[in-house]
């Protein structure tokens, strides 16, 4: 059961009394080989969990940064199966870091939920986040994933009210993802004061760790969130590095990993500063 890897990681983080740093990158961005190099380097750079995006032509919840990453990946012929290949290659060298795939529903519908769950489990994938699959529509996908021991990570947002919370956390495992701003990825900044009570509420309802993302671009913000949440997710700020390194002809992998380790340090030391 691969979801154990997520549980083990959060238990270890709890024992260390620190939040986890979750790094998001897009499969095939800027190309398949470099993306694999980045993936392989992320744990040493301090990523406690990794979210690997699979590209979609119509990423409705993404801001410009991830939209462009998706387009770069598709231009390089990255696919859902190609993403699973990357996951498998990563897993061969790392048995401990949880790997969560993130994307949109249609490529999964197209592949078939059962086939996807089987291949994903074989590739060493631990969880899945699907932006456009609310709990109301998730049962067929949950059935397929549960059969293979993969967690369907649920999203909650500032608009999720008390009434919806039970539905949102039903049939979820691993952790819950709190979308800290009403908006697309990488544009608005999270309000750390508003995040704390939301995380409390969600943790109580789900009885699971809560990772916070969508509005964290800087080390300072990551540290603020890491004081109150179980994990802080950063995506667009890492992807920006890929894009700018590509433009400036710099070493992409080095640049992304150096940004990742800056963010990881901020997350790791966040609670030490306060005590």
């Amino acid at each position: 059961m691969t979801k154990d890897r997520i549980d083990r990681r959060f238990a270890a983080l709890k024992a260390e009394n620190r939040a986890g740093f979750v790094a998001y990158v897009m499969a095939g961005d800027p190309d398949a080989a470099t993306a694999l190099e980045i993936l392989k380097g992320l744990p040493a750079a301090g990523a406690d969990l990794i979210e690997l995006g699979f590209p979609f032509s119509d990423p409705m919840a993404e801001g410009p940064t991830i939209q462009r990453a998706s387009q770069r990946a598709l231009a390089g012929k990255m696919t859902l199966n190609g993403t699973l290949d990357l996951a498998r290659a990563f897993r061969e060298g790392d048995q401990d870091t949880p790997l969560i795939l993130m994307g949109y529903l249609n490529p999964l519908v197209n592949k078939g939920f059962e086939a996807f769950a089987k291949d994903a489990a074989a590739a060493g994938v631990d969880g899945l986040i699907v932006v456009d699959c609310p709990p109301e529509e998730a049962d067929p996908l949950s059935d397929a994933l549960e059969a293979e021991g993969i967690s369907l990570i649920r999203l909650a947002s500032p608009t999720t009210d008390e009434k919806r919370l039970p539905a949102v956390v039903r049939r979820t495992s691993g952790f819950v993802y709190y979308v800290s701003v009403a908006g697309v990825t990488g544009v608005k900044e999270a309000d750390a004061d508003a995040v704390a009570p939301a995380v409390e509420r969600l943790r109580a309802a789900a009885q699971l760790p809560v990772a916070v993302g969508f509005g964290i671009r800087t080390a300072e913000r990551a540290a603020e969130v890491a004081r109150v949440a179980d994990a802080a997710v950063v995506g667009s700020a890492l992807v920006d590095e890929i894009e700018s390194a590509g433009k400036l002809n710099e070493n992409v992998t080095q640049k992304v990993l150096s940004k990742a380790s800056e963010l990881a340090k901020a997350v790791r030391s966040a609670r030490q500063d306060t005590v």
Binding site: A61, V131, E136, L155
Partner: peptide, 12 residues
Amino acid sequence: GGLYVAETLMPL
């Protein structure tokens, strides 16, 4: 048909 939107939009 159905309702396939991001959680932020679901309540709306």
